[in-house]
Structures are given as structure tokens and as C-alpha cells.
Design a protein around this nucleic acid. Structure first.
Lengths: 256, 256
DNA sequence: CGGCCGGTTGAGTACAATCAATTCTGGTGG
DNA sequence: CCACCAGAATTGATTGTACTCAACCGGCCG
């Protein structure tokens, strides 16, 4: 059952993040050594999900943790009124499924095709008890996810829709820079309604807000998935300077 | 310099949380053994802050971590427009100051008198590398703080002010129950403007919203700091049932 | 007593939600 | 290759909620 395959992703789970205590100039490292990855790989299997597929539901017994290889996953919570709200975008190298207390506290859904390592909690936990280094790396990753969640909360606290959207675009862009991808345009793997759920405005408002930024000459929407930032200074006046934000030049508070 | 004092808090840092992988019926445990606490105490000193005092600022070098003994701390971020937004309430047994990347990513301020253990990062890190168990407990704590941050984001995504306030009161109440405190009334250690900053509405709106809930007979505001929930069913219809929320009866997603 | 701080209340406004109609886009099959 | 379809996205008109600004209250401390 454990298929220790090595697809394009390499020989086992990867957890990439920055060490929260070292001023690393924002570079992001693979936290795990090949050795650790191999040890994790032994207990892992690779699973694939189709676009739109639910990976687990709020309340399900939380007996596996996932580590994304490729694709994008979203974590949702259901509001009383039936509306869902997204609490996180999960991207390659992210760890998810561990925020429960015996149960998952949110629902995870693939919004693109996804490949991920699937790690049974019992095995992982066993391994952890013997491996201080691995644990430390997981601590680093969790610090990062925590920071990220706080950033998200900060975004949600903004009143203006333009600010929210600009901050969101900034997140995504930083993310892509960190990934080392070509970023003349910002690439948006999610659709408008996902964005709306993440930044806490309606689909209609997302659309209007894109238009507003376009009208003002700040961005240019190439197509649904590609946006270019034309007026950098105006853009950062709205979104807030990311460098100021995180306290260190080129710090990359976004996951991955 | 390390004053290994044992005030009312006991013989060293405490990290209380629930193990995220064990369905523990919501009971919260001291995660650290006396032994561990003693080892941590060796590297810790106790610091005290007055109400209103800033503990550290966004951008400061992050060389110490804190573990609250008594009191309430808030973590802020500054918005572009000068407004601040609160990203977390930190309470006894909570760990804070570790979300940086060489630097603190937010500003911490005591909103009551605070006593805390002060742990130098270098020493802590050193210790961690040798102590798998301690690391595991920190992982548990981080999972909890992450869950909490996601809950906060969820709260902020709500559109109606009443819902936000009700959810907030629910948080605080659960917190007090977890602490084992007497809770005929909900006790609010923070003032109205802090609440507003946390739930993302203005001071004026907080006031109106309290009134609205009072008018409807759902709560009764004894004084600035004490609120009683009169109509439980109506209250939970607005806030969302906390049991549903976390998937397990009496799960306590709030810190403490 | 006076000033200050935290909180409450009021009037008017702005921004995003809502509901609903319409257009655009990408994919499928003839 | 085109026609068609379904889902995604845009746009419009209206409404409501919370913001803004400002006045006011009440306790506390000097």
C-alpha cells in the first residue's frame, strides 16, 4: 500500500519554509534532509485528487496528514447560514490535516488536480517521538502557517474591498516569486468565487473590484487567470508595502 | 539574571493545550512534565509588564519567546492607514513571540498587568534539539494557536456585527469554562475598543451591537466587564453552535 | 471642580450585499 | 469547424448595515 513512488516531486515529503528564528533574507529552504524525507516516505503513500474533490470533511476522524506535492487545496468552514468561508489556501510543500483534535476542524477540497503524500498520524507520531530534528522542522512550518493565518485575519479586517483584493494579489505574487516562477503576470489558480470566499466579499464584489483597479490603471486583467500589476507604487499604497509588513526585506510570509 | 522564581504559577513555564490527535473530550492538560518545566525554568527569567506596556514591536529582532503566567496580551499589526488590527489575544499558558523570521511580525502589548516567562530563543532552540518530547508539546500548542487563528479569520469573515460579537463572547466564555472559572457571567478583561479591533468593527459599532443584543433580551450587560447570556438558544443561533463548530462535544478551540 | 478617558448615542453617508439579468468562455459533440 | 451548452464572470438597480463625525455622558483622579 505505501507506494514509495518518486514522481517529479522527489524522494519523499517536502516541507519547505523559513526557519522562524534565523534572518534568512527570505530564502526558503527545504527543511528536510534527504534522509528524513526517505524515512517519511516509508510511511507515506501518494494520493491524487481531481479538481473539485473533497479530501476530508469537518468532523471526520483526523487520522491522516497530507503534504502537497502539486496542486492547490482549500480549507473551508461552514457558517451557520450555510455559507462557507475559506480559511486557507494550501499549496505545494504545505502540510495540512493536522489542525484537529481527533477530528478535522475544517473541510479540505482540491481546486485543481492534486497529488499529495498521505501520512498516517499514528506512524508520524511514532516517528516524531524519536526524531527531534524532524519535529523542529515541523515547528518551523507551523510557525509559518500561523503567521500566514494571522496575515489572513489582517486582510479580512480591512474594510475596503480594493485593499483586500490588492493584499490578496500581493500574497499570491510573493508566493510565486518565492517559488521562483516567472512573474510578469500574477497567475491565479483559483476562480473568482474562491477569491471572494478567501477575502470575505461576494463574487460580484470581486468582479467590480477588479474592474475598479483596472479603471484606475493599477492592474491589467489579461484573462481570468492572469493579472499584471501596472502601477506598482499605487498598488502598494493600497495593499501596504510587503517589506514594511514583515519587517525584513524580501521576507516571504506566504506559504511554500 | 535568570530568576528561577516560583510565583503562584508553579515551578516553571507551562504550556497547556490539547493534543491535536487524541480525542480528549476537550479537557486541557498541562503538556509539560515537572521535569520539563524545571529544565525550561533554568533558562527562563520572569518579567512583568504594566497594563498598556508594549512588550515588543513589529520588526524588532526576535530573540526571546514569552510564556504567559498571568494577564492578557494582545498582538497587533499596523494597517497602512495607521489603524491597528489585533491578530490575537494571548492568555495564561500561551506562547508568543515565535512567529517571526528573525524579527517579530507583530506588536505585543499588555492590556492588563502581565507576568511571563521570558525564554531566550538560542537557549530554547538548543534545548529543543535534544528534547523530542518538549518539541512535540510545542507542536501541539502551535496546532492549537493555528486553529485559533483560523477561527478568528472565520469570525472576521462574518458580515453581521451581531454574529461577530456573539462569536466573540462565545470564545471568551469557552475560555473561561476551560480555565475552570465560575461563569455565570462572561468576564471581559479587555475594553470595548480592543473588542472592536479584534472582531473588526468600530468602537461605536461594538456599543450598538451590545445594545442590540440587550434589547432583544439575549444578553444582559451587568457592567463594562461582565455580560450574562440570558437566552442561550437565541444566542447560539446567532453565534453558531460551538459543539458543531469543532466537531467534538466540549472541544475547546480557545487558547488557555 | 475640571479634565480626561472610556463608552454611548445620534444623523447622514458610503460601500458592499442582494437579486437578477446578461455576457463571456471553454469544452463537447455534431 | 461550428453550434451549442453550462458554468463562470460581469454588470445593473436597489437596499441595508456599519462607518464617519460629532455630541454627549459618567466615572475617576488629580
Amino acid at each position: 500500500m505505501p507506494k514509495i513512488q518518486t514522481p517529479m516531486a522527489g524522494p519523499g515529503p517536502t516541507i519547505r519554509a523559513v526557519d522562524p528564528w534565523t534572518p534568512s533574507a527570505g530564502r526558503m529552504h527545504h527543511l528536510l534532509t534527504d534522509d528524513e524525507r526517505a524515512r517519511l516516505a516509508v510511511m507515506a503513500s501518494i494520493v491524487r485528487f481531481k479538481k473539485g474533490e473533497v479530501i476530508y470533511r469537518e468532523g471526520d476522524p483526523a487520522d491522516v496528514v497530507f503534504n502537497i506535492i502539486t496542486g492547490v487545496v482549500t480549507a473551508y468552514r461552514k457558517a451557520l447560514d450555510g455559507n462557507e468561508h475559506m480559511v486557507a489556501f494550501l499549496l505545494p510543500d504545505d502540510l495540512f490535516g493536522l489542525s484537529g483534535e481527533g477530528r478535522y476542524t475544517n473541510t479540505a477540497r482540491a481546486i485543481t488536480a492534486v497529488a499529495a503524500y498521505r501520512l498516517p498520524v499514528t506512524a508520524l507520531r511514532n516517528r516524531l517521538s524519536k526524531d527531534a530534528e524532524l519535529e523542529f522542522h515541523i515547528i518551523c512550518k507551523l510557525c509559518q502557517e500561523l503567521r500566514q493565518a494571522q496575515r489572513h485575519a489582517f486582510l479580512l479586517s480591512q474594510r475596503s474591498a480594493v485593499t483586500k483584493l490588492a493584499m490578496f494579489l500581493q500574497f499570491i505574487e510573493q508566493l510565486q516569486i518565492a517559488k521562483g516562477e516567472q512573474t510578469a503576470d500574477v497567475y491565479l489558480p483559483m476562480d473568482r468565487s474562491d477569491i471572494g470566499e478567501y477575502i470575505g466579499i461576494t463574487l460580484a464584489a470581486v468582479s467590480r473590484t477588479f474592474r475598479s483597479l483596472t479603471m484606475r490603471g493599477i492592474i491589467k486583467v489579461r484573462d481570468r487567470r492572469h493579472v499584471r500589476i501596472l502601477d506598482r507604487t499605487a498598488f502598494e499604497k493600497i495593499a501596504g508595502d510587503p517589506i514594511e509588513e514583515s519587517g525584513v526585506a524580501s521576507a516571504l510570509p506566504m506559504r511554500r
